[in-house]
Nucleic acid binder design. Structure first.
Lengths: 224, 224
DNA sequence: CATAAGAACTGACTGATGGTCATATTTGCG
DNA sequence: CGCAAATATGACCATCAGTCAGTTCTTATG
């Protein structure tokens, strides 16, 4: 039945159209001041219609984040295939995190408003949650691949199982970016520009898993 | 004029009573579901009265956080005066951050709802902001003292100015805790328990500023 | 084509919340 | 006491996420 398929496709398109309008609205008016009404207006739909595609505002936000993460993954994949040493590659990967955080201003702000664990328990669409988990898992896998490469090449020495170290790295970087992007520290604290500060945090972490004899290696690549 | 002084004192007491009631209300009902009305009820005051002491809910939350930080500072001071090597001391200091985060569940959740930079611009009480900045500054100073001690003793080798490294450390740790306490990662990611995970992040960071020849030092102290 | 079943959409409405303000009460003092 | 300033009140307002009875559009069938 071609009609069934077309309907499904159209439904997906409308969903994406809503997400796209939501992003436009957020960029126009800022995250805090964008209500569901505004998103509906931007999408030229009634508010009620939004709730036919997303069970809640949180779910809509999660949809936005998933799409963004997809883009990040694309860029990480490019880094993975660069002909570089693992430590340099990892450094570049986290640099992508940062440039991603600059180009997707809302991503890290949205993240602070989302309680993932809470949503898992709620009556949210399994589809949205599954897609979110999936995309997150792929990010982990990519970083894990690079670290593994470094271990094999003898560049890294891990003090904990690979899987754990990777999660630790991601949490530390992600957390730092969240803090910075949401102004959770008094502005006078931060004497360095954000880019430098973040680069040095990454360097500190990488020195923490590097073999002693490469500890002074200069990661001169820009973290931008 | 003793009356003037008494009034000021009473005003301060009332302010503290409100903060105390707010904390009680948060513990009773959770952060997300505690409204200004509930806090007012808990404090046995009308809602309007709260606004005579705090310009906004944000400012009230900031008041709570400031008080909490005061407690953290007390505990950090104890660590500072322990007869330990600098690296061990720093490790213990961050362990205090973590136990603090366990005992003050709301601190790190409140933090995600506070845009400090935004408040600085707004019409918020200078007093509250000044107190908040002050207490934050003291935390930085304490950590800075420990790191300086380590540099002098030759335990640490810094790759950036002292002030910057300290802010980097704090942002990375604080960020990690924020991520964990607010469930900003899919639960299935985190295979380790929170305490171990955080301890290993701290260890990674500390190896990143340690002299190579002490790199394998085992920080066995519990991060609890 | 006519019509019925149902999918998609609508927007007025609800309940809750942060914040305001005209009014009322309490306090300090001549 | 009488009056002014400080303090407290709670009805009220605007806004927002989310609901749902009713409307409009689409498609299958006689």
């Amino acid at each position: 039945m071609g009609i069934q398929e077309r309907k499904e496709r159209e439904r997906g398109q409308r969903r994406n159209a809503i997400l796209s309008s939501a992003r436009t609205a957020f960029i126009k008016h800022g995250l805090a001041t964008t209500s569901m009404d505004r998103i509906a207006k931007e999408a030229e739909l009634a508010k009620g219609t939004l709730y036919l595609y997303f069970h809640s505002k949180d779910e809509l936000l999660m949809g936005l984040i998933s799409n963004d993460l997809e883009m990040l993954i694309q860029r990480l994949m490019v880094v993975v295939h660069l002909p570089l040493a693992a430590d340099e590659k990892l450094f570049r990967a986290f640099a992508e995190f940062h440039s991603f955080s600059k180009e997707n201003q809302f991503f890290f702000q949205v993240m602070t408003q989302l309680n993932v664990a809470q949503m898992v328990g709620g009556d949210h669409s399994q589809e949205t949650l599954a897609s979110f988990s999936n995309v997150n898992q792929r990010v982990v896998s990519i970083i894990q691949g690079i670290v593994q490469e470094g271990v094999t090449a003898g560049v890294f020495t891990l003090h904990a199982p690979l899987e754990d170290v990777v999660v630790q790295l991601i949490i530390a970087i992600k957390g730092s970016i969240v803090i910075l992007k949401n102004n959770m520290v008094p502005p006078m604290w931060v004497r360095q520009d954000e880019q430098t500060l973040l680069r040095e945090i990454v360097q500190m972490l990488l020195r923490g898993i590097s073999r002693s004899d490469v500890i002074h290696k200069n990661h001169s690549g820009a973290l931008s």
